[in-house]
Amino acid sequence: MTESSVRGAKPEKVRPGGRGAGAPGWMVPTGLIMLSAIPVVAGALRLGELAGGPTGDPADARFFAAPLPVVAHIIGASLYGIVGAFQFARRFRRRRPAWHRMAGRVLIVCGLVTALSGLWMTVFYPRPEGDGDLLAAFRLVFGTAMAVSIVLGFAAVRRRDLRRHRAWMTRAYAIGVAAGTQAFTQLPWMLLVGPLTETPRALLVAAGWFINLAVAEWVIRRR
């Protein structure tokens, strides 16, 4: 290479989130996958218990009596959390629009299965100790909000209103992966105070949903 060619060469610009940025483009999806890993692992353990047969624990009897809703909820929520995280990788989404559309269809089904099975379990499963009326009310509100957000997001993309589509799907995902956040909202109480009673448990579980939705609204407005 000659000296003139070196002098004439222009330094390559590194765009934010581009190839030169490396990890930042995947930081958000990676964080979401890590957050989703908490309920995914818990769900896998629950599926293992169901496959092994009745345990004799009265709290688990409801799952063995009607296993389909909880199995559908675990599988739907796990796929929704893991696959949905990749929808937040902007460069990946733009480079593979066909994958984004295909994954989006899968996520709509998984999200609705997650929300509707959660509503069914709240209404029809016997409540375990520590789950009171307040927690059931929160679950009904946020489960319904998740299902409505997915339907509105789907309707928006059918109208090619991508801004509203992204906003509603972001809200639905925030509600759907709140189980990971709820683990962190409840853990300090259990470590510092002890076992959770009905009202603190309900409020701390709701805090996970509120935190996720607050972050989702910040992301939507930042866009």
Rank of each mutant, 00 (worst) to 15 (best):
A66Q: 12
M27E: 11
A44E: 00
R96F: 15
R7H: 08
V219F: 13
V151E: 13
L35N: 00
F142R: 02
R105G: 15
W26V: 11
F86D: 07
L79F: 15
I220F: 11
R101T: 10
V219S: 02
P54C: 11
W99I: 04
R93V: 10
G43D: 06
A59E: 14
E198W: 13
L134G: 03
R101E: 03
I75S: 01
R223D: 13
S4A: 14
L68A: 15
F86M: 08
L107D: 06
L162H: 07
I108A: 09
C110A: 13
V41W: 14
L112E: 11
F184P: 01
C110H: 01
P58S: 14
L47W: 13
L50E: 00
R222F: 05
T181C: 06
P39D: 04
N212L: 05
R201M: 11
T122P: 03
I175S: 08
L50P: 07
E129K: 02
G25H: 03
P195Y: 03
V141I: 15
I175F: 14
G132D: 09
G194R: 00
I74N: 07
G176V: 04
G130V: 12
M169K: 05
L107Q: 02
S5H: 10
G194P: 09
G176Q: 12
A214G: 15
D57R: 15
Y125A: 08
F210A: 15
R139A: 10
V71K: 13
G111M: 03
E49R: 10
Y80Q: 14
R160V: 01
A42G: 11
P29A: 11
L68S: 05
P16H: 12
L191W: 12
L112A: 08
G143H: 04
I75W: 05
G18M: 13
F210G: 00
I175N: 08
D57K: 08
V71D: 02
V71N: 07
A156M: 06
A155G: 02
L203T: 04
H165M: 07
R163K: 14
L32F: 09
P39S: 03
T114K: 01
M190G: 01
T197C: 05
A103F: 11
G8F: 06
A178S: 15
T199K: 01
A85L: 01
R221L: 03
I150N: 01
R19W: 14
V141T: 10
G84K: 11
L119R: 05
I150L: 04
R90K: 13
